[in-house]
Design a protein around this nucleic acid. Sequence first.
DNA 1: CTGAAAGCGCTAACAT
DNA 2: ATGTTAGCGCTTTCAG
Lengths: 335, 335
Amino acid sequence: MSVTIKDVAKKANTSIATVSKVMHGSYSISKETADRVNSVMEELGYHPNQRARNFVSQSNHTIAFVTDIEKGAGFSNPHMFEMMCGMEAMLTQKGYGFLVKALKKNDVCEYVKNAFDTKYVDGFVIHASVITPELSELVSAMAIPHLVIGVPSFDNNFCWIDADNRHAGQIAAKHLLTVGYQTIAFIGGTDEDKISMHRLEGVKSVLKEHDVLLPPGYLQYGNSGVEDGYEMTLQILKSRNIPEAIICANNYLAYGCVKALNDKKIKIPEDIGIITFDDYPFSKILSPKLTVVNIDVYDMGQEAGSMIVQKINKPNLHIQSYITYPQVIKRESTK
Amino acid sequence: MSVTIKDVAKKANTSIATVSKVMHGSYSISKETADRVNSVMEELGYHPNQRARNFVSQSNHTIAFVTDIEKGAGFSNPHMFEMMCGMEAMLTQKGYGFLVKALKKNDVCEYVKNAFDTKYVDGFVIHASVITPELSELVSAMAIPHLVIGVPSFDNNFCWIDADNRHAGQIAAKHLLTVGYQTIAFIGGTDEDKISMHRLEGVKSVLKEHDVLLPPGYLQYGNSGVEDGYEMTLQILKSRNIPEAIICANNYLAYGCVKALNDKKIKIPEDIGIITFDDYPFSKILSPKLTVVNIDVYDMGQEAGSMIVQKINKPNLHIQSYITYPQVIKRESTK
DNA sequence: CTGAAAGCGCTAACAT
DNA sequence: ATGTTAGCGCTTTCAG
């Protein structure tokens, strides 16, 4: 076994209580004893046993991030990881460990309940993809410190934060208007796709404000594959008056859109400007490089890390808010 | 406080030792008591306190993954996260928690030493990007359970596993030969870029074996940007005899290569075939979709998870090996 | 300013 | 088959 507080106490000719006090910088300790104890600790290479401390304090100083990641997620969902990076950084800064737990929606309740009951972790950040009404019940009934990332789509008592996609949509529309595009079309996901819908809402609100019309033909919905973007763009091009710019609800649609425009020999950004959301690596690689409204998910992760710690310290804090740092990254696909 | 083993014992009219035994399925317990205890546990909603267990057993059943990730890593380094997914899955399966710790190379020694001394975690998986000779000293001097992912580039006592990029290079070359390309060029990173170099080695070994020449003009090195790939491809096209296929050491180079070939109106895969490594999301999005030798980093993560657990259980196990599951994903850029 | 002692909740020898 | 008891290493009253 390694050296314990007892060993230090013995060698320093004092009690373990005093050693403990020295470690915690208690004022009621004479400089001499403190010095003596410190040097013995040094000499013996003493390190407090974290597990014993966890046990006594009934806190692990770790939080679990619960989400649904499976094989391929690293490639298909870079945002999730970018968020994790931000969370980890903030939690480290606050003195917490960052534990990752991949779970299917159906297993989350059991895990959270158990992890909480057994005091395995101090709190949970839970991705909206795995929340359920039962979980909402559970966390509020047992007052489990938690924070959901993403807006729940049902009645709930969760604390949550989310990116404000509506705001991002507004920013996209404003950017296009500002640089001089006067007619704007939108291609987006199905109506199941909340993110796409919120972005569209934001776009609409800005267009309305500026008295820009959005004729039905300028609005296309579909799946979010490259091919879907391609087809939807073709649809838009059938309009009597071709729009001056197209807002694509996501990168894949945007790539399909670019392809369609290329095939039709339509110049980007001169004839038609394109803007999309989220800064995927290939936004910078495509030609033209895509102008993008980026949401800083790293910052969002940091925010989440900071908030879960707040929740742990002030359990009755209740947060439900949109947090977002959208920003235009101007590249080649807009004037 | 929540319900403890004492409460259960009292209510079940037995001792805490018996309760403990019931939990661990000891044989020397009568069916009746076991049943009674179990139902009391159920009734009271008892859950053993994990922290107390950790304390007693001096094991957290958690391992820390130490690596250098910073803002943007989610996008720039999908492989890292894919590996993490695999590790998490395996560790969960083995009953371990997965803790992520982002650290700069200079801070790793201190962290590992302290986390080990304080028994904060049971073992470490360490990414090769943050290892140092001092760390090697440390882990072997203190017998710290660890596993490095990536080959160290210096003399060391680490246990490590790595992807076999040489093997991947062989597979790429073999694939091209098999589908009928007879002359092959290679564009790769600088000679600092070990991964690229290893891939090239593999390629060379296969070409040699099949008596295929690799004239100097067919070999281009540079940085790994899209533009670099573009330029290097142009260089290759200056050769007297244009090669029938090009192996690109990574995706970015490959994209530049595709661009150059498109600009020169050279048809892929008819005139020139292209193959590259690692299945980035945009390999499937580009046109033509890229044929790729994929290394399953998820599997590698799983392997790492499994091995660190083995190391914890059998400390004198020493592993230094190349582990790899390279596989050709045939798409449109080769015949 | 210092120390004795009572836990924290559980496990595992050792008795019975 | 069951119970007693001694820790695990540390924090924290409470006395002195």
